[in-house]
Design a protein around this nucleic acid. Sequence first.
DNA 1: CATGAATGAGTGTTCATTCAT
DNA 2: CATGAATGAACACTCATTCAT
Lengths: 205, 205, 205, 205
Amino acid sequence: MVMMDRKERDKQLRKADILRAAENVFASKGYHEATIQDIAKQAQYGTGTVYLYFKDKNALYFSLLEEKIQSLINNAKEKTEQAKDAKKKLEIFIRESLVFFEQNQSFFRIYMLEKNSIQLIVSKKVTESFSVLEHATEYVEKLIKHAQEENVIKKNYSPSELADILASIMGSMILNWTKSDLRKVGSLKDKTGFIFDMFLNGAGK
Amino acid sequence: MVMMDRKERDKQLRKADILRAAENVFASKGYHEATIQDIAKQAQYGTGTVYLYFKDKNALYFSLLEEKIQSLINNAKEKTEQAKDAKKKLEIFIRESLVFFEQNQSFFRIYMLEKNSIQLIVSKKVTESFSVLEHATEYVEKLIKHAQEENVIKKNYSPSELADILASIMGSMILNWTKSDLRKVGSLKDKTGFIFDMFLNGAGK
Amino acid sequence: MVMMDRKERDKQLRKADILRAAENVFASKGYHEATIQDIAKQAQYGTGTVYLYFKDKNALYFSLLEEKIQSLINNAKEKTEQAKDAKKKLEIFIRESLVFFEQNQSFFRIYMLEKNSIQLIVSKKVTESFSVLEHATEYVEKLIKHAQEENVIKKNYSPSELADILASIMGSMILNWTKSDLRKVGSLKDKTGFIFDMFLNGAGK
Amino acid sequence: MVMMDRKERDKQLRKADILRAAENVFASKGYHEATIQDIAKQAQYGTGTVYLYFKDKNALYFSLLEEKIQSLINNAKEKTEQAKDAKKKLEIFIRESLVFFEQNQSFFRIYMLEKNSIQLIVSKKVTESFSVLEHATEYVEKLIKHAQEENVIKKNYSPSELADILASIMGSMILNWTKSDLRKVGSLKDKTGFIFDMFLNGAGK
DNA sequence: CATGAATGAGTGTTCATTCAT
DNA sequence: CATGAATGAACACTCATTCAT
């Protein structure tokens, strides 16, 4: 995006190294059990080095979440815009999310591990930088509103509630998939149809 | 249920005291931020006393989850059996779960905070005592299977996946409800109809 | 002073143990180089134990200073009141201070090491509990005022400045004494006369 | 003094830059709270550069003290030699010291903060380079000896003790002055008379 | 049985010092 | 020479767990 000199580029590379290591460690242990030393070792840096790039453990953690969510949203938006009607947009959104999570399983672990903590525990440390999450939900809401306007989705249900439900259905399916034997089950994105159907038509006959 | 002497009864009473305290503390701080001293103080016992009734922090935590889930299932089973057809049973199950969580908000916090951790982190400490959760899902699966047999629910979808989805929809709604201004929104169990509808018929028009 | 049960008494004893250890360690290393582990080890307690009795390193440090200064003042006041005229009072004050510091050499090290830091660096942590020092200087000022009223000391000099000067002369002499070979020089309180003379009559002929 | 080539001159200039920065930083934070990075940044050099000119933090610190004390002594000596009699010399010494400290308040802060640490803590790192202080006290002692020979000062008191006392009285007065509202109180060197009087004639009537 | 004081391993974080560029 | 990123030892402080009373 922006032109940067070698120094700035190297800095970004190292920051990325550390984020990658943090992703693994947080994913396998969760926030509290992960130690900065774990992460530093995983990234093959000294302990102190981590602090050159992130103010503290919390900042590292939220940087990670932010980066990933941002990239998920950006990708979803881009792909979504190629479709015309709201129904297709929704379907693409579901598929792209599944693709993303399939490619980012360790991030998914983190997301699932802490998403509720984030929402329930009102930590002061959090609020600052965490508009990303709001943007994410706002985006899904927008998709749903469009679908309502196009008469694809019932108008009497609140878009924000529907957005949460769609997200939770997807979460549930991804979780199921991660727990199953991956070789047998096939790609996660094959679940798109099922999720889409469940969301639009439910389980009823 | 079982006959017990005074000694055993007292022991159970104290165990319950501690579980009640743990429920509050875990609910407001989450597992890691809660300390045994917090819990002991809240229960008006000495720190060491907690260890007379629970092997360690983890055991206390899972005892709590187990007890609550057990009571949720028991209650749901009992109420559910009063209905004849599968559709009604499902509706009752949903309603009773909502009632339970409305009465046990702090447990719900715990459940939401850690439910994913429980499933994702394969902790050696966990596996032992955690058959309850399986029983719970098994029970919902059974309800769904019945509904499939009675032609209320599509037969081509897996009961276990549908069970997870139903649970996640309910979780999503409860979370929404806890976050909103309780006085305005009314009782949680009023959401029964909406959830039931979403699950059976989806959001589509 | 106050009646206390065994528990409270034991607690005070342990607090005293730790204060004694802290006195040694701070005295030989200064505040920053002293570690809590040093102090705990010296007191033959575990690291964490220190924190049962003192909020943090700072609190321990100031507790120590406060306790010592308080005891110095109390003793000085008591002995001083036995004399009638201001001149005698001043002399007794000087002697008693010397006796105190001779008996509390490691405290004197601490006092000298940090007294200026205390006065120069306006630390927020300090201000709260540090009225003791003010009381101490106030007391010396009062002695000097009395001496001025009794025409023993020039009235045109400010009592507070004179108090500081007296204190600094004493500090200087005590420092000299600690540095010299104690066996040869004799007791510190033998310097009373010299200090008293220097303060009243100066070095001039 | 000595002829030096450009290289050597530049080196001295840079050393001086760093010493100036160190003076500010040490004065406002004290030895332990000051960091090499603070100093380097203040001096507008890289962190590593500091180590090209000073072996370590300690060496930098003592270089600073040494330089300042040296310059104080040199100036005092020079001005002092203009007077003939010992009494006048002493007075000039006091005045010049006050002038120096008034112009070097941040150094004074450092001096007061650590002067006792220096004398009390027998650090291996210190001893090497610290003959300056001895020279300084030796010089004051010499002044006092002269005054004794000229019958201005009592002969029965030890010159070294008197030197320390004079220094401590001056320190006390300077400290008082720095703490007061400078605009009201006027120049520090106006205290010369008072100090001289206190030293020669004491506070007595 | 009940207690809560004592413990010390373990964590996040800082900073003097080094060294590749 | 100059740099400043990297390092890792060190420290204050917490808390699950134990055990003497």
